[in-house]
């Protein structure tokens, strides 16, 4: 990891100015943080409170009696964790999510490099079409794609597309790759395209091929952008319910976590009280991923490597 260039508003401006600068910032940050936390706190409180109390009074009443032990319970968490096939569903979610995050990033990074630094016919128009595809609602894609997966048919015409593909991990990876690619290409091209052209030029002068430039320069320099997209794609796939249900199915051996948890709710929502606990359990891993990727969002990574 390159050197951290230190806190931005560092020493210079003098003590009083610093104080003046800092306090409003802190207040503003705290206000936004509290606003953003309020709904989640309601969820957190309810995930630990017994059903009767959650239904009978507002979650904020907890602050007036935090030590009334009879209101607290771990039952919701244990009933979620004990749900039939929970462990298997967790592993299935991982088996779906990790490749469905890595594959589109890799493909998009190569494509973004080409869109930014290589010359070929139709480059601009292709890029615009790629970004424009962002708007295609994935719900409209499910039926034609399922048909393709089951019969290998495009527009009702048979093709050598390997089938049947549905019910396999590959089917979901490819679908998520397709649905995630436009945003990935868009975000990464914006970042890779804004890298200083001098780096690439000097590398070319030193005799590096495009492939070498991509691997040795572009990828390390693009870590913050790759990490941001990785987080979003990870989240979307992790929280996805529909794509997995359509292309993988809902039988116990392939069921993903979101499906297992949605079923807990019951047909009419009889067991809805476990949903807050379920929500926190699903959130845990994505948040851990976010936290662990935080260190890649550091200032000066670009500058440092370029100068170095």
């Amino acid at each position: 990891m390159t050197a951290r260039v230190g806190a931005p508003v560092a020493a210079e401006p003098g003590f009083f100015k610093k104080l003046w600068d800092r306090w409003p910032i802190k207040v503003a940050v705290i206000v936004i943080v509290i606003l953003w936390l309020i709904p989640t706190v309601g969820l957190l409180v309810s995930s630990f409170r017994i059903k009767a109390i959650t239904e009978a009074e507002g979650w904020w009443t907890v602050f007036s009696k935090p030590f009334q032990m009879s209101q607290w319970t771990f039952d919701h968490y244990s009933s979620v964790l004990d749900a039939r096939g929970f462990g298997n569903a967790f592993l299935n979610s991982l088996a779906v999510t990790i490749p469905a995050t890595v594959i589109p990033i890799t493909i998009a990074a190569f494509a973004s490099y080409a869109f930014s630094w290589m010359e070929f016919k139709g480059r601009q128009i292709l890029f615009v079409i790629v970004v424009g595809l962002l708007v295609v609602p994935l719900q409209m894609a499910l039926i034609p794609l399922l048909k393709l997966y089951t019969s290998g048919e495009f527009f009702g015409i048979g093709t050598p597309f390997p089938h049947p593909l549905n019910g396999t991990y590959m089917a979901v990876w490819l679908a998520h790759t397709g649905f995630g690619l436009p945003l990935a290409v868009y975000l990464l091209r914006n970042y890779i395209g804004s890298l200083p052209s001098s780096i690439i030029e000097s590398a070319r002068i030193d005799g590096a091929t495009h492939f070498q430039i991509f691997v040795r320069l572009i990828v390390p320099l693009s870590v913050p952008a790759l990490a941001s997209f990785a987080i979003f794609q990870f989240l979307w796939v992790w929280n996805d319910f529909l794509v997995a249900l359509v292309f993988l199915g809902g039988t116990p051996d392939v069921k993903v976590l979101t499906q297992a948890l949605a079923e807990l709710r019951g047909q009419f929502g009889q067991f809805e009280h476990v949903l807050p606990a379920a929500a926190f359990i699903t959130m845990a891993l994505p948040l851990a991923v976010f936290f662990s990727l935080q260190r890649y969002f550091v200032r000066g990574l670009t500058a440092g490597s370029v100068k170095g």
Binding site: I143, P144, L145, L146, K147, T150, N166, V246
Partner: peptide, 10 residues
């Protein structure tokens, strides 16, 4: 789901 599965040939 049933619409997707039936129309999708599955």
């Amino acid at each position: 789901q049933i619409k997707i599965r039936v129309e999708g040939g599955n």
